[in-house]
């Protein structure tokens, strides 16, 4: 071996992860490109594709929202195996408001967003002190329990669900609403997690005892994070209810719990952009795989396994690292 590969961080990166030293427009462009180009591409895609793929993009956005919500919870040390809980609660609130009270989507969606957040936070409040897999098990159990309760008590249409709900003006409207929501949530969460407030949330994940002895009420912070995450999930549910004009037991299905986790694992946890990227890869992929039918979930499962074992950092972290480095071959000195 005469040569070896050398990897160097670009000079633009200062000593810490999130401090940059910008000296020129070129460098600003360097930071802007990965942020602006995907948004532009996304916008172009919406103009070019037909109604079918517009629908796919809507459900992609919905899963992206759930994945973002999952990532915020994880950032605060709460691992959820039941995003379907948030989704389902939001969906049912919307359905009930629209079906029984005839409220228009203009009201149902905001009410379901806030109300879903409140309901889910209250449901999980008693188990906030649990960590790790214990919390995960509760989130796994809750949506299943709600499904069975609806099945057993036959409330809200029971197994039939509520159909004939109001729709939104047009597919294009649904599409832009969902995409703007994703981008807004992404921007907000990414900002939030780097503030001092976000630092406290991340501190709770790493070492909650240390946060507590610092005189900070971790339950209060966890509850706030939970509210934000579940409100985002509930919004996704509310939106989907009006898109399908139907709400029923399928809203608590495994898909809504697994896909967001798979997205986050594939895309890269802890960055928000990663889970979103993951959703934008996995959902269209699964749509393309519709031909193989039931194999879809098998593939998600395998994705989960392969990525947790082989590339635990996820795609986003990997590309981010590569983008900020350059590689060159240098002579090995003997």
């Amino acid at each position: 071996m005469e040569h070896r590969k050398e990897r160097i961080d670009r000079g633009i990166k200062a000593r810490t992860e999130d401090i940059y030293a910008l000296f020129s427009y070129r460098e600003m462009l360097y930071l802007l490109v990965p942020r602006v180009i995907p948004i532009l591409v996304l916008f172009l895609v919406t103009l070019l594709v037909g109604v079918y793929w517009q629908k796919v993009l809507i459900s992609t956005a919905v899963f992206a929202l759930l994945a973002l919500s999952w990532d915020l919870l994880t950032a605060a040390g709460m691992v959820s195996l039941g995003q379907a809980l948030f989704f389902g609660v939001g969906a049912y609130i919307t359905g009930i408001l629209n079906h029984y009270f005839n409220l228009s989507p203009l009201f149902t969606i905001p009410i379901a967003t806030v109300g879903g957040g409140v309901v889910c936070t209250l449901l999980l409040l008693p188990v906030l002190r649990l960590r790790g897999i214990y919390f995960a098990m509760v989130t796994l159990a809750l949506p299943l329990m709600l499904v069975r309760i609806i099945e057993a008590t036959k409330i809200f249409g029971g197994t039939e669900g509520l159909s004939g709900l109001a729709g939104l003006p047009s597919t294009r409207f649904e599409l832009y609403l969902s995409l703007i929501a994703v981008l807004a949530v992404l921007f907000f969460f990414r900002r939030l997690i780097n503030t001092d407030y976000g630092l406290v949330l991340r501190g709770i994940r790493d070492n909650d005892r240390s946060v507590m002895r610092s005189g900070i009420n971790i339950y209060w912070f966890k509850a706030q994070a939970l509210f934000m995450a579940s409100a985002v999930g509930a919004f996704a549910g509310a939106l989907m209810t009006h898109v399908y004009m139907f709400v029923g037991m399928p809203v608590f299905e495994m898909d809504y719990s697994i896909l967001p986790i798979a997205s986050a694992v594939v895309g890269g946890m802890g960055t928000f952009a990663g889970p979103m990227l993951g959703a934008f890869i996995l959902v269209p992929l699964s749509e393309a795989l519709r031909g193989v039918g039931g194999l879809r979930i098998v593939i998600y499962g395998l994705f989960l396994v392969i990525f947790t074992v082989a590339l635990p950092e996820g795609i986003f972290h990997y590309f981010q690292r590569k983008y900020h480095q350059f590689e060159r071959w240098v002579k090995v000195e003997k």
Partner: peptide, 16 residues
């Protein structure tokens, strides 16, 4: 957490 996610993924894959 990785153990849970990975084993859950395996289970999902086998069942489905």
């Amino acid at each position: 957490i990785s153990e849970v996610i990975a084993s859950f993924g395996i289970g999902l894959a086998i069942l489905e």
